[in-house]
Design a protein around this nucleic acid. Structure first.
Lengths: 145, 145
DNA sequence: TTTCTAAATGCGAATTATTTGCATTTGTTT
DNA sequence: AAACAAATGCAAATAATTCGCATTTAGAAA
């Protein structure tokens, strides 16, 4: 998938650094998402885990991992959440074809600039810790019907 | 709310230009969203409409209006959708406080640049017709606990 | 205007994703 | 090894959103 070398933090370390318990569910989810570095829904993940982790555990784990910024949650307007491992060295967003649903990474986003601009426009907000940016369009295949 | 003068296209015209039928539900929704130009959930809208429009009709109308780009759908990560009237002259995004839920407009976004950059990075996509950009942070009140 | 037809609505019921309460298990700390 | 808070599994509940279908309605055609 990726042509780049991704520096993978070991799941154990990710949890440890966040002060989270190293539980089987969390380790399994992180390992899976690291080995499959594209957006996955809770259902995807549930199906993928061999040890048959309970759905509610998956949801709870995903929420915890997202709030610790280990995972990021993405809204593709498909009626369910998707999650990806956060890799600070390869910050990216996505472009989705609204015809066929195909998703591609968009490796650029001048985050610093965007956030600075946003903060300069508000007096009510002191800090921005997260942002979402998604593009929707048509891929060449769908454009030609 | 807004210090700017918003050029409001009459709901009738919006529907006409999109080639949509001018139905009561659509007109009511558009009128409400124009008079209350902040993000609203389907439930908000349902409660607001006097003629007691059916929920499924509201959902169907919102979907139609969004796909015609008359409305935009926003994901504030609150477990439900929010909609706003699209005003091309006042393109904006939002910043949400993840403590208290407060939402503020962020009037800046160099859309053209963002989209151009995104398109330059992909060979698979020909066009981008929509983008989402949301910021999450802490407002000054919440920051000081 | 009246007629006609496809599209939109209302209603009820079904889905689907996600959440919650609680008893049990597990990870970490002492 | 003991102790305890936190995480899990299970079952059941929510909450948002969707669907099927009979009825109505907006706009085109006559």
């Amino acid at each position: 998938m990726s042509k780049h070398t991704h520096k993978r933090e070991a799941p154990e370390l990710l949890l440890q650094n966040a002060g989270l318990k190293k539980t089987k569910a969390r380790l399994a989810i992180l390992t899976y998402l690291q080995e499959h570095p594209t957006p996955h829904s809770p259902e995807d993940i549930s199906r993928a885990l061999v040890n048959n982790t309970d759905t509610s555990t998956i949801y709870r784990s995903l929420e915890t991992l997202e709030s610790c910024r280990i995972l990021t949650r993405i809204d593709f307007k498909k009626g369910r959440a998707y999650y990806e491992i956060v890799d600070p060295d390869h910050h990216h967003h996505h472009i989705t074809c609204t015809d066929c649903g195909m998703i591609e990474d968009v490796p650029v986003c001048d985050v610093e600039m965007l956030i600075k601009k946003a903060l300069s426009k508000t007096k009510t907000f002191d800090s921005i810790h997260t942002h979402t940016l998604e593009f929707f369009g048509h891929c060449s295949r769908c454009k030609n019907n």
